[in-house]
Design a protein around this nucleic acid. Structure first.
Lengths: 133, 133
DNA sequence: TATTGACCTTCCAGCAGCTGGAAGCTGCAT
DNA sequence: ATGCAGCTTCCAGCTGCTGGAAGGTCAATA
């Protein structure tokens, strides 16, 4: 199938698919006209990549996951480890964002938000530390 | 003060400070030797930037915040609006990450993580949709 | 058969926000 | 005089695409 169809099948933009070929994540065949010719397996790989990316795995993670997936004797422990690390990173990111959120909430609440000068948000940014995260 | 001192004072890497000058966020004076010469106010600006960035504001947001900060007649409503939008983005990001987290948690829990082949995580990534976010 | 229009190709540039490194000055202590 | 830290500029690269230009191809239609 052509790249357009592979795109529809996998849900990835054609541009992204070309990029994935560039960096060696897929290697579709080529027709006599130079067009890429994707097999069902290629399309499947692309969908796999799309799903992995949508779960927030990095491209390098995806590379590893793909090779684990293609290794029939793979140890699921490796996959679990990778996913767990990823989970930890996500949990940490959530924590950070939540701290950020509460700081900002405090600031926004304290800011009267009218035309009077003097703004607690700016004061905080300027280091007056009326509020701390 | 030299860039090194400004770096220590503001907590920003020297490289970052040079970059901020490049994009017009600060404009330190220059000594006869070509070295940057930061005033107290410059250092203060840098700290302001650092704090804004650490709260997740984009560079463009920072530019706006700086100009609002420097505008003595600023309306705090503008600042509040900017911060509120930012807050919304953060809240949304948290929601996304939490959805991701629970999907991954389910997957990781189901994966036995030993040497046996067959891994629910990979199966999910491959589209077998045993688990849905 | 000529022409349209959708599709495909490659290559180059740019997004954010830095960060690293090379090559070369300056300033200060020894 | 020498050495080393610190400063300068400039160029390249990171992640993961995305947009656009310039051009080849294919199928259908007039």
């Amino acid at each position: 199938m052509n790249i357009g169809e592979a795109s529809r099948a996998s849900g990835l933009p054609a541009k992204t698919i070309r990029y994935y070929e560039d960096i060696g994540l897929v290697s579709p065949a080529r027709g006599a006209n130079g067009y890429r010719d994707f097999s069902e397996q290629d399309a499947h790989k692309l969908a796999f990549l799309g799903r992995s990316r949508s779960l927030g795995f990095t491209i390098e993670d995806c590379r590893t996951l793909m090779s684990l997936y293609e290794d029939r004797d793979r140890a699921s422990a490796d996959v679990k480890a990778l996913a767990s690390e990823h989970l930890d990173r996500i949990a940490q990111k959530i924590d950070e964002l939540q701290a950020l959120k509460s700081t900002l909430e405090t600031l926004v609440t304290r800011c009267h938000g009218d035309d009077r000068p003097g703004c607690p948000i700016l004061d905080d940014l300027a280091g007056r530390k009326a509020v701390t995260a």
